[in-house]
């Protein structure tokens, strides 16, 4: 190959790359300015786990130990005792070692009463690793702060401004498609 041809080849190669890059000049930016602009987290996303309480402030959790058994990473510790009045159990301790949690949401999947749920609260970096060992008070606090959460039994739920808990509209629900399509046909 002559020198001229080589030079032409190089110019063509560079021109081709520049053209491909220049095609994108007019595109809108995708960068989110993180500390000031938070990402949109879908309700089903597993960023943190929380314990949800009923509207009257009582625990949803019935201490059935299903989540403790389902956890692959074995980070949930539940202590319970027999309810002296009536049947069932009373929750004494609910510890979630969030350091070793693998965010699989198996616990959420098996919970029969939707007490443990996934929330989109992801900012939990700490200086001391032991601060990530969550106890029940901590998980309750996360649950009280949560505005929207997901559990397979009840689907996506929303906390209204007055504190009442309500099921989210089908546009936000996994499997809401069936309802939406049925609605269209009916209309």
């Amino acid at each position: 190959m002559s020198l001229l041809a080589e030079v032409w080849e190089a110019v063509r190669a560079i021109g081709q790359g520049m053209a491909a890059v220049n095609r994108r000049v007019g595109e809108s930016a995708v960068t989110e300015f993180y500390p000031y602009q938070k990402p949109e987290i879908p309700p089903v996303s597993v960023q943190f786990l929380a314990l949800i309480q009923n509207e009257d402030g009582s625990d949803r959790c019935v201490s059935c130990l299903a989540c403790e058994r389902a956890c692959p990473s074995q980070v949930i510790t539940i202590e319970r005792k027999r309810n002296p009045a009536g049947k069932g159990f009373v929750l004494e301790r609910f510890d979630l070692d969030f350091v070793n949690c693998m965010h699989c949401a198996n616990c959420v999947e098996v919970c029969p009463v939707s007490a443990i749920v996934t929330v989109g609260d992801f900012e939990h970096a700490v200086y001391d690793v032991n601060m990530l060992k969550a106890d029940k008070a901590f998980l309750d606090e996360i649950g009280r702060r949560a505005q929207v959460w997901y559990s397979p039994k009840f689907g996506v739920e929303i906390r209204k401004p007055d504190g009442s808990i309500e099921k989210a509209p089908p546009e936000m629900q996994p499997g809401g498609l069936a309802e939406l399509l049925a609605g269209e046909e009916g209309a």
Binding site: P42, E109, P152, P174, G175, G176, L177
Partner: peptide, 18 residues
């Protein structure tokens, strides 16, 4: 690492916009 497939299918239904 979503842990989405499961025995007999998938874990949950898709989002309406999927």
């Amino acid at each position: 690492l979503p842990n989405y497939f499961t025995f007999g299918g998938v874990r949950r239904d898709v989002h309406p916009d999927f």
